[in-house]
Amino acid sequence: MSQDPATIQLLSPEGQIVQSDATAPYLPLIAQLDDQRLLDFHRQMVVIRRFDLEAGNLQRQGQLALWIPSMGQEAAQVGSGYAARAQDHVFPSYREHVVGRIRGLDLLQIIRQLRGNSHGGWDPAAHGNFHLYAIVLSSQTLHATGYAMGLRFDGVIATGDPESDQAVIVYYGDGASSEGDVHEAMVFAASYQTPQVFFLQNNQWAISVPVARQSRTPLVDRAAGYGIPSVRVDGNDVLASYAVTRSALDEARSGLGPRFIEAMTYRMGAHTSSDDPTKYREGGEVDDWGGRDPITRFEKHLRLRGAGDEFFADVAREAEDVAADLRTRIFELPVPEPESMFAHVYSEPHPVIEEQRAWLTAYEASLEGDGQ
Rank of each mutant, 00 (worst) to 15 (best):
M1R: 15
S2N: 15
Q3T: 15
P5D: 03
P5F: 07
T7W: 09
G15V: 01
G15D: 07
Q16N: 14
I17F: 07
I17K: 08
V18G: 01
Q19L: 13
S20E: 10
S20T: 12
D21Y: 06
A22N: 10
T23F: 00
D34W: 08
D34F: 06
Q36G: 11
L38M: 11
D40S: 01
F41Q: 00
Q44Y: 14
V46Y: 00
G56Y: 06
Q63Y: 15
L64W: 07
L64D: 05
W67D: 03
Q73S: 04
Q77P: 05
S80I: 02
R85G: 11
H89A: 12
G104M: 06
G104R: 04
D106H: 08
L108F: 13
I110V: 14
I111T: 05
Q113Y: 10
L114T: 05
L114W: 07
S118M: 04
A125W: 08
G128P: 10
H131W: 11
T141W: 09
G150W: 01
G150P: 13
L151Y: 05
R152W: 10
F153T: 13
D154N: 10
D154W: 06
I157N: 02
I157V: 14
G160V: 10
S164F: 14
Q166S: 05
A167H: 06
V168C: 02
Y171H: 12
Y171V: 10
Y172L: 10
G173P: 06
G173W: 05
D174M: 02
G175S: 12
A176V: 01
E179V: 11
D181S: 03
M186V: 10
V187K: 12
A189P: 14
S191F: 13
F199Q: 04
L200K: 02
N202P: 09
A206G: 07
A206L: 02
P210C: 11
P210G: 08
S215W: 02
V220F: 07
D221Y: 09
A224P: 04
Y226M: 14
S230K: 09
D234S: 03
G235A: 04
N236H: 07
N236G: 05
N236D: 11
N236T: 03
A240H: 03
Y242N: 02
S247A: 13
D250V: 08
D250N: 13
S254M: 06
G255D: 02
R259T: 03
E262F: 00
M264W: 12
T265W: 02
T265G: 01
M268K: 05
S274E: 13
T278C: 09
D288A: 11
W289D: 03
G290M: 08
R292L: 08
R292C: 04
K300R: 09
K300C: 02
G306P: 03
F311M: 04
D314S: 13
A316S: 11
A319R: 00
E320Q: 13
D321I: 01
D325K: 04
I330L: 05
E332G: 04
P334Y: 07
V335Y: 12
H350W: 13
H350S: 10
A358N: 14
T361R: 15
T361E: 15
Y363W: 15
L367G: 12
L367A: 14
G369W: 13
